[in-house]
Computed example of a mutant assay.
Amino acid sequence: MSTPRVFLARHGETEWTLNGRHTGISEIPLTPHGETQVRQAGRSLVGPGRLIDPSRLTRIYVSPRVRAQNTFLLLLAGCAGAPLEHVNVLVTEEIAEWGYGRYEGWFPAQIREDRKARGLDKERPFDIWRDGCEDGEGPEGLKGESAEEVRVRLDKVIKEIRELQAPYMNGEKNVDVLLVGAGGGGG
């Protein structure tokens, strides 16, 4: 046994990731190429004796977005013979993509143009990590998140993982963790 590890798997290519649009809560499916990317990664990285060995996994966190769900299934598709019943799979908003709010589906240039037209960012250009995202407009306005809000929810997951792995840092038990979500933070 060895020191516990945490693996991060970003979802495969979607139409919006391919063309650079901000994708938060929109349910954009993987492209055929995205599915191929994930299958190839799974064959190379996941399986008995590979980097991500299912027998070493104890927990998997998955974003609720369909692109992350499909990535999870395709990534582990080659593990049919490997035991996974001991793995706790948690589908959680805690690792969901950034809430882009008003900017959902927008290109970075559109965000800059919109903010300029509304008189924002006079002193410095928009930076999602500093400025966050505004809520959308109208009755169905999407919630925009700040970097602090994203940090808070991700810190909850990090705390859970630390608590899970801390007693076994010398390899006393297999407690590897896999997270399947998005890259996030464009702008």
Rank of each mutant, 00 (worst) to 15 (best):
residue 1 M to Y: 14
residue 3 T to K: 13
residue 5 R to D: 00
residue 9 A to G: 04
residue 9 A to I: 08
residue 9 A to S: 10
residue 9 A to T: 05
residue 10 R to K: 03
residue 11 H to I: 04
residue 13 E to M: 11
residue 14 T to D: 12
residue 17 T to L: 02
residue 18 L to H: 14
residue 19 N to Y: 06
residue 19 N to E: 13
residue 20 G to P: 03
residue 21 R to W: 07
residue 21 R to K: 11
residue 22 H to I: 07
residue 24 G to D: 02
residue 25 I to H: 13
residue 25 I to E: 14
residue 27 E to Q: 15
residue 32 P to R: 04
residue 33 H to C: 11
residue 33 H to P: 00
residue 34 G to A: 05
residue 37 Q to E: 14
residue 38 V to D: 09
residue 38 V to H: 02
residue 40 Q to I: 09
residue 42 G to M: 09
residue 42 G to W: 10
residue 45 L to M: 13
residue 49 G to A: 01
residue 54 P to H: 07
residue 54 P to A: 04
residue 55 S to R: 15
residue 55 S to P: 00
residue 55 S to Q: 13
residue 59 R to H: 05
residue 60 I to V: 15
residue 61 Y to F: 14
residue 61 Y to N: 11
residue 61 Y to V: 11
residue 64 P to Q: 07
residue 66 V to F: 09
residue 69 Q to I: 14
residue 72 F to R: 01
residue 72 F to S: 00
residue 73 L to N: 13
residue 74 L to P: 02
residue 76 L to V: 13
residue 76 L to A: 04
residue 78 G to D: 08
residue 78 G to Y: 00
residue 78 G to N: 09
residue 78 G to A: 01
residue 78 G to L: 02
residue 80 A to P: 01
residue 81 G to P: 04
residue 82 A to C: 09
residue 82 A to K: 01
residue 83 P to N: 13
residue 84 L to W: 01
residue 87 V to L: 03
residue 87 V to Q: 02
residue 88 N to G: 07
residue 89 V to W: 07
residue 90 L to I: 14
residue 92 T to W: 02
residue 93 E to I: 10
residue 94 E to T: 02
residue 96 A to W: 00
residue 101 G to E: 00
residue 101 G to W: 03
residue 101 G to Y: 00
residue 101 G to P: 01
residue 102 R to T: 04
residue 106 W to D: 09
residue 108 P to N: 10
residue 109 A to T: 12
residue 109 A to P: 10
residue 112 R to I: 12
residue 115 R to T: 03
residue 115 R to W: 11
residue 116 K to P: 00
residue 124 R to G: 05
residue 125 P to E: 06
residue 126 F to G: 01
residue 129 W to S: 05
residue 130 R to Y: 03
residue 131 D to T: 06
residue 139 P to K: 08
residue 143 K to I: 15
residue 145 E to M: 01
residue 145 E to Q: 03
residue 146 S to C: 06
residue 147 A to D: 12
residue 150 V to R: 04
residue 155 D to I: 06
residue 159 K to L: 14
residue 159 K to R: 12
residue 160 E to S: 14
residue 162 R to Q: 15
residue 164 L to S: 11
residue 165 Q to W: 07
residue 166 A to P: 12
residue 167 P to G: 13
residue 172 E to Y: 10
residue 173 K to D: 06
residue 173 K to T: 07
residue 173 K to M: 11
residue 173 K to S: 06
residue 176 D to G: 04
residue 178 L to M: 13
residue 180 V to H: 04
residue 181 G to H: 00
residue 181 G to N: 03
residue 184 G to H: 05
residue 185 G to D: 02
residue 185 G to E: 02
residue 186 G to K: 13
residue 186 G to H: 08
